[in-house]
Amino acid sequence: MEINTVKPHIVVKDLTMAFGDFVLQQNLTFTINRGDIFIIMGGSGCGKSTLLRHLVGLQRPAKGKVFYGDTSFWDTDRTEQKRILKKVGILYQSGALWSSMTIAENISLPLMLYTDLSKEEIREIVSFKCSLVGLSGFEDYYPSEISGGMKKRAGLARAIALDPEILFFDEPSAGLDPISAHLLDELILETCDSLGATVVVVTHELASIFAIGNNSVFLDADAKTMIAGGDPKRLLSECRNPMVHDFLTRGGTEDYGNQSINKSADDAVLSRDCMQMRKENGNE
């Protein structure tokens, strides 16, 4: 298995995001490698979610390019864009489940559109995905009938319905209590590791950043560009930019890197390594 060979998956070159005349961010250049858990972080209103919308093809950049492999997303035709998006799963901030459909119908729609599976097979896949995210038995509920955390988990089940190569998460733990947030983090780690997917997470939850991220980009609203990037744990210990340092230490009040979080981060890394080992062993 070529786990450790670094291959770029998504490359962003000189991206400028703007609404009309208002420039939100400019000169964004970074690379997301295959298998990365890539964090897009920054203060509120700096354009994290907007960057995500640019990456997944919901908003055309004012300038610059987004490459998926060798293909420039915004310069290719609609069929090719569709082919790229087919391998992408997205968990939106509020889950964004289609409210007129049940959970099962939500998860089965991508399957019905992109596969030739029979209804029976689709139903089996749906109930399997539901059990993966701990929602067995809720297949026939409508999104309005379940809680916020369950919606996010259902959204995750829909995002992984087609076994995507890239998963995008928009503020996965926003609005969840610490325990649910932690469980969702674990769920993300586990599903992604087992799918071998590249993960891009928009978040400002320090706990999540250190627990799951191994690469990142830091956007700043005042500078209107990225001011740091790389492994968040290394950023914490090495980056001298006061803005980044303040952000990663909660304004200097908490030392996440060295104390409590370090443990859970280590645990997460450990569990990932273990899983990797299991997988490798399984493949041999």
Binding site: V56, L58, K86, V88, Y92, Q93, W98, S99, P110
Partner: peptide, 20 residues
Amino acid sequence: AQIGTMQVNEEIDALNTLGV
């Protein structure tokens, strides 16, 4: 109102990114 709420709730984005 239905479609507008879907817009607010990002459901339309979800359809777009699914290629529908």
